[in-house]
Design a protein around this nucleic acid. Sequence first.
DNA 1: CATGAATGAGAATTCATTCAT
DNA 2: AATGAATGAATTCTCATTCAT
Lengths: 199, 199, 199, 199
Amino acid sequence: MARITASAKATVRERLLAAAARHFARDGLKSASVDAISLDAGFAKGTLYNYFPSKEHLFAEVLTEGCRRAIQRYSAAQQGGSVRERLTALAAADVTVVREDEGFQQVLVREALAFREETYPLIVEHLSPFLRTVEEILADGVRTKEIRHDRPDQELALMFMGILTLLYVQYWGSRGQWPDLDSIPELVVTTFLDGAAVR
Amino acid sequence: MARITASAKATVRERLLAAAARHFARDGLKSASVDAISLDAGFAKGTLYNYFPSKEHLFAEVLTEGCRRAIQRYSAAQQGGSVRERLTALAAADVTVVREDEGFQQVLVREALAFREETYPLIVEHLSPFLRTVEEILADGVRTKEIRHDRPDQELALMFMGILTLLYVQYWGSRGQWPDLDSIPELVVTTFLDGAAVR
Amino acid sequence: MARITASAKATVRERLLAAAARHFARDGLKSASVDAISLDAGFAKGTLYNYFPSKEHLFAEVLTEGCRRAIQRYSAAQQGGSVRERLTALAAADVTVVREDEGFQQVLVREALAFREETYPLIVEHLSPFLRTVEEILADGVRTKEIRHDRPDQELALMFMGILTLLYVQYWGSRGQWPDLDSIPELVVTTFLDGAAVR
Amino acid sequence: MARITASAKATVRERLLAAAARHFARDGLKSASVDAISLDAGFAKGTLYNYFPSKEHLFAEVLTEGCRRAIQRYSAAQQGGSVRERLTALAAADVTVVREDEGFQQVLVREALAFREETYPLIVEHLSPFLRTVEEILADGVRTKEIRHDRPDQELALMFMGILTLLYVQYWGSRGQWPDLDSIPELVVTTFLDGAAVR
DNA sequence: CATGAATGAGAATTCATTCAT
DNA sequence: AATGAATGAATTCTCATTCAT
């Protein structure tokens, strides 16, 4: 089966990555089995090693690929409108990505919440553009007096992303019971902006 | 007075559990080593099996023990005062517990965020008393018009607990950089009640 | 099976080493199977790893143990007598060791002839006392005019050891046809001292 | 004139054999990699299997080819002159072959010293013409009283070849420190004929 | 009870070999 | 004829668990 086209190779690679994402999302790095991943992708176990030198490298590639795809999250953020509108749009873009790449994004979220030495830099690299986008929106909001200025933008941005992450976890954990993906953008924004207190 | 019993010589079982909590918190269920746990507790590895039938049982016991200890979280909640005061007190009590039993609480949080089939019931069992306490406070708040009534108490309570958990994760992940434990009660309450928007 | 006596542990270790020596002698480092060695020694495959951290370490230990036992080779050399008598005695002592530890000595000889980077230092360490003993005998012989002085002692000593090694290899290769072990001491000495030419 | 054909463009098979000889000489049968051999020869790994059915067959072919080339060793032996002169000429011819085909000859020597069942017949087949040539020279020498008659010609011939082999091993092992190739013919003859004893 | 040596199922990884292109 | 992707048997090594002492 030699002389396969470059695109065919890329397809195999993608199938392996996708299977790996599913397994890592469900089982974590340690518990996921290389054999099972390969088999799940439709190949014998040896095949995986023609594409990735080790389980750890495969995991890193899943993370990287997840990040690469997630770039759309923040690049889709629109420029104009109120802070509420822009944050909602950002969250909506994010939800779209998550819906399409559930495995990858689960792995990202799991790693983000685990804070492991080995993957921390990768995760930070992935999160920071998203965070910066949020910070910019918030900074604009402070200027327009939409956002309170008694808490640092960075901390607020972290909270926004945290609440969003939280809702994903809740979504995955409840198997879609509550919340569902579609309601997440509004939920995260109202939670973040308005709080629970009566005004 | 509690201090007297607490300082009493730890039983073998408790030492094993504490060591297990530390290791599970750091390494997770799969990566933690039975051998290392036993050794860390000051025993040979065989000893552990005189107290727990398997690694999985040990993990479950750590979870259970963590829950048992965490009961103080919500039982310490005071009855009177404003919603803000009561939620702050509840969070403060929670922080106290976390500070004392960091390993156990990390394991709980990690499991809570992973939503694994095997441990889900245990986690829910642990969370529900806490959640119900929050719900009660919020229900009181709705009655006193301190809390908005356009969102179900249950969902709001979940968000409160989620934000609290988030701050713990952020605390552990940043190695105490931000936030520190002491600032968490106020942070969670203001985030939850007030939101980021200017009023 | 805990609380085994120290001597029982040593026995297990020795059985593993002996089995390893047999297998390494026959198959070499790469082809020998850790599982087969453990099984051959009468243990399950995992047991070997309670005594040696890796196949390479095991191999090194076999080499080291072979060297340790081979110390008798040269320490048994008598002081007095003619060069011929002393060399014969040295070779005879060597043959005795080889007869008792055939596996170990085969591994040593194989490694000595392979000159691999990894084991070269160990081999040299093992050979040098033997070589020095030969050199001393030869130096005495030069003084007493028994040995020709037109070739460096070191090179002559290397040749002596080489011829001895050669005879072992020939013995193992011919499966004892020629030479047999008993005839080796005289053979090596007459080959080394007298040469094939008529005088 | 031989040089013309020799410098002719090597066929694929010959390039593969040459690469294989290099790798087998360095790494041995087991550790050498089919992949690396093919690549080293300038082909993809599949190509090798168009010429040799298996790694073992390839190894056997390297051995056979080494033997075929080594025929010059003994065929170059001159007829006239003293035993010393004839043996020196034989060794010199041998050294020339070794110098040109180092990889092949290293594989041969390694195998000769390992005495493995699988390759023993091949090795013997290769050695016997060389041995017979030596035996003939020695038999002539016995007749002319140049060679002692108290030891069988066959054993003496084996020792001569053994000492020669030994010097090659020592040359390879010391990376040319001692002896160098040029000095080997005289060394082997003087060691073999004269011995170390003063006459 | 505590111990820790022995166990062996299981996991990651290697690599000679096959075969479609 | 050359290629190199796919294969899967084989191998090393890990570690939870057992159990004799």
